[in-house]
């Protein structure tokens, strides 16, 4: 079980972005990926999280090779087991906070049973009072927290976060990091966090440092 990365290479044309990456992340681990800009962090995260496939090598999620999953299997896996948090809080502008948070549940047709959990999450993230607002009526930090609540709603096994604090002020960034800590601690969710902030990287239990497409630690 867990996440296994086996001799991964990723090329974009002639450019070799990832070169022979190997590691294993146990279930419930909190791992950060750091490195300089352009070192391949995002590329690696996308490959780990089914959004992209490696040029060579394999990624196993819960012992399933992501290369060999069909469209349907990937959709289901994403819906049930993966939560994404990106630097830009991608929310659907036509939906309210609550509807955005419930989106993965809507997809799995379990919307009504998740309303309570949605409210709890919003409460913990201190945006319960924003529940019926639309994204355009909220601040950037509030929107980012809505996106985090959406990532957590299905209680996924994996959370993949790419610079989730990149757009936030210090206070809000710290809040988001606290939240990730808490999720990892309380629900044994595997977290893979991409960040170039050394302090945040250090908060993870393990740090994977990328340099020029290779793991250097």
């Amino acid at each position: 079980m867990g996440l296994v990365v086996d001799h991964i290479h990723k090329d974009f044309g002639k450019q070799k972005v990832l070169k022979d990456i190997n590691f294993k992340i146990e279930n419930g681990e909190y791992v950060s990926i750091s490195g300089r800009s352009g070192s391949g962090k995002s590329t690696l995260l996308y490959i780990l999280s089914t959004l992209d496939i490696p040029t060579a090598g394999d990624v196993f999620l819960d012992e399933c090779n992501t290369k060999k999953m069909n469209d349907h299997e990937i959709d289901v896996f994403r819906a049930k087991h993966i939560g994404f948090i990106f630097q830009f809080h991608y929310l659907i502008p036509e939906l309210t906070t609550l509807e955005n948070v419930l989106l993965p549940a809507t997809n799995l047709k379990v919307e009504s049973s998740k309303v309570e959990r949605a409210k709890e999450l919003l409460n913990e993230l201190e945006i319960l009072d924003q529940i019926h607002k639309y994204p355009s009526q909220m601040s950037g930090g509030q929107q980012q927290r809505v996106a985090i609540a959406r990532a957590l709603i299905m209680e996924p096994k994996y959370i993949f976060a790419d610079e989730p604090t990149g757009n936030l002020d210090t206070y809000n960034a710290a809040k988001v990091m606290d939240m990730l800590d808490k999720i990892n601690r309380e629900s044994k969710t595997t977290i893979v966090l991409v960040t170039h902030d050394p302090d945040f990287a250090a908060r993870a239990k393990r740090e994977i440092l990328l340099s020029d497409g290779r793991v250097v630690n």
């Binding site: 959709d75 819906a79 049930k80 991608y90 929310l91 989106l103 959406r150």
Partner: peptide
Amino acid sequence: QKEIAILRSVGFSKEK
């Protein structure tokens, strides 16, 4: 496009 990406990333299928 952005929203389509979100929907796909939270597991909405092509068909949906």
